[in-house]
Design a binder for these strands. Structure first.
Lengths: 349, 349
DNA sequence: CGTCGTCGGGAAAGCGCTTTCCAGCTGATG
DNA sequence: CATCAGCTGGAAAGCGCTTTCCCGACGACG
């Protein structure tokens, strides 16, 4: 960005000021394997303070081969889903004394790959991919290569959510969670469903929809009767889905949104259209982002412990014992609140 | 964290594979000031791809003196206030081709200083401090020194919210916003106020409370009658404040929480205690974090364009012309929603 | 009293890259 | 035809640090 005239005191300056060699100064300040005489040590530390010495992390990384940096790739940091995960990752990294660099992709495969390359260039100790993977053969192959090279160079990595990559992964029970939700809705008496899903190129979306449909089918309800509303994986997408639902005068009694933010958008539109939730239609989301509990009606959803997942991903990525692709599953627990209820409308035949 | 056996292809490998010198390889891959013959260039790029060459960012930084990195210090990334600011900073940085490294302090002055030092060590191009500063002489002096050294070394920096430091700053109109809110409440008929504030060592808190009290006083209401509830600057703090309010059987008709997350906590407790909002007591927050609009009742607050503020801070921090301490003010706009209304309860004399 | 082991210190070799400076070549010019 | 720009490629000097290897000094020991 800008030219940086060094201006900073270097270790050589400190060594000179203290009247010792570079080696001694380095040892005194980093407390390496070797010990430095207490008197010299004192003098060096004092000189460093006097000169406002700050080691150059790049030089250290270059010379020492270590960085204490982890790269985190996610879609959008202001999305509560990702910021919860990020919190976990950052907390986990802090315990390792590492810093987290964040790349936000806004769901672009290219940007995702680019960030991973950048993190490789930074020689990040670990790379964590949050957010689901794309179901795209080229993307998967490219990402596979990148991560493979990264690991071969000694770096760790982990993904949150299904990526279908042979790397350590934190896997929420998307399928099961969605299936449980479906069963709960069927049990409550629902027979006609609508599903608002994001772009089906996202693995997470496919799994959640898949789990939901399978369970519905298992309950003896023809899957073809389920209305699929394909819209972006965002609040705006949720809005669009609700609009489509209204436009086609859907007779669905329950709407499953594959993510809470989509549910948020849908609820907004439904409320504006005067559709009562849950009386006219039940609505459920997925993730149990903090605010779902607080809305009126409180939104039914499927809970995931996002922060713990982030932390776990960080552990997996930094654990050298994870050379093999280990996998940690996280349970998804259905939380029924006020936005879902048995269908009450008398339906036409 | 771990030892990194290099394993990666280096520029030297690429040069050798292409049968050229280091210099040429570097020039071909970075498109520097000098041109490389198209045939050689092609050969080099091809070799780089074949070897999966990724430049070592640390070596580049060390040799070139440039990093394209910005350090962001904030309290908690999962707090919507900060994640909105972070989004702005990250977006701004992306436009400069820079990456953002995030340090979360959880409101610890020591950690804040430590992160700034770390970012200096990384030779970050810019350092952005989000979240308000602490009103602590030692902290201020230390931070002043750090930032001064950083800038003297050619780095940029900026702060969001009042820090009382001679560096570029993005200043929300905390005082005015709180004062406007106070006036609006007085106009609505309120006379007895309670203010839930975070620790008064935070500048932001002081300004918001100060602005509120000044305006109240200017309306002829004795400031001593305003109940000050001093609790942490968090949802938990908001809860505690509400509890205190209930415990002391306060007769306040309006509760001003200095931040939305505090209001969130307070509303939760009030609802649980059967206190009706706004009928029994009006509640207002500050920041207009996305979800405030969605709660029932929708929460009155003071809007700040957080993302724009983050973006602006990034610009200030990266603009070399900002050597002098420039300041950009952001307006704070009162947004009255359903959580505030004229007091209706007949009050005892 | 000579020798060996140990310990604190220094010299120097890189880590991987950018960039200056220099050399060789081409083509234009007097 | 000799000379001089004008280019393109290479050699090498760092950037600031860690770490290996070496060396001198000192106490212990035979």
């Amino acid at each position: 960005m800008r030219i940086r005239p060094s201006g900073q005191a270097t270790l050589a300056d400190v060594a000179r000021a203290a009247g010792v060699s570079l080696a001694t100064a380095s040892r005194a300040l980093n407390g390496g394997a070797r010990v430095v005489g207490p008197d010299l040590r004192e003098r060096i530390v004092e000189a460093a303070r006097r000169l406002h010495y700050v080691p150059n992390a790049h030089a250290q990384a270059l010379a020492g081969g270590t960085t204490a940096t982890v790269g985190l790739v996610l879609h959008d940091i202001s999305d509560p889903y990702f910021s919860a995960i990020a919190r976990g990752v950052i907390a986990g990294a802090a315990e390792h004394g590492a810093l987290v660099t964040v790349g936000t992709t806004f769901r672009s495969m290219e940007r995702e790959l680019e960030f991973v390359r950048t993190f490789r260039a930074q020689r990040a100790d670990a790379i964590v991919l949050a957010g689901s993977g794309f179901e795209d053969a080229d993307y998967r192959a490219a990402m596979h290569d990148e991560l493979d090279l990264h690991r071969r160079a000694g770096g760790g990595c982990a993904v949150v959510s299904e990526h279908d990559l042979p790397v350590p992964a934190v896997l929420p029970d998307n399928r099961e969670g969605a299936a449980d939700l479906a069963r709960a809705l069927v049990e409550a008496g629902h027979r006609r469903f609508a599903v608002a899903g994001g772009p089906s190129c996202l693995t997470t979306v496919r799994h959640r929809i898949g789990g939901f449909l399978d369970a519905v089918a298992a309950c003896g309800i023809p899957v073809d009767d389920v209305e699929l509303l394909d819209h972006p994986f965002s609040e705006e997408g949720g809005r669009a889905a609700a609009h489509e639902l209204l436009d086609r005068r859907s007779r669905a009694t329950a709407l499953f949104c594959v993510s809470d933010v989509m549910a948020l958008g849908a609820l907004d539109v439904l409320a504006a259209a005067g559709v009562a939730v849950p009386d006219d239609v039940s609505v459920a989301g997925f993730n149990d982002v903090p605010l779902m509990r607080r809305l009126v009606p409180a939104v039914s959803t499927v809970r995931l412990d996002l922060e713990a997942m982030g932390r776990c991903a960080m552990e997996l990525a930094s654990d050298p014992a994870t050379a093999d692709a280990r996998t940690v599953r996280f349970p998804a627990e259905v939380v029924l609140r006020d936005s879902t209820a048995p269908p009450v409308r008398q339906e036409a035949p």
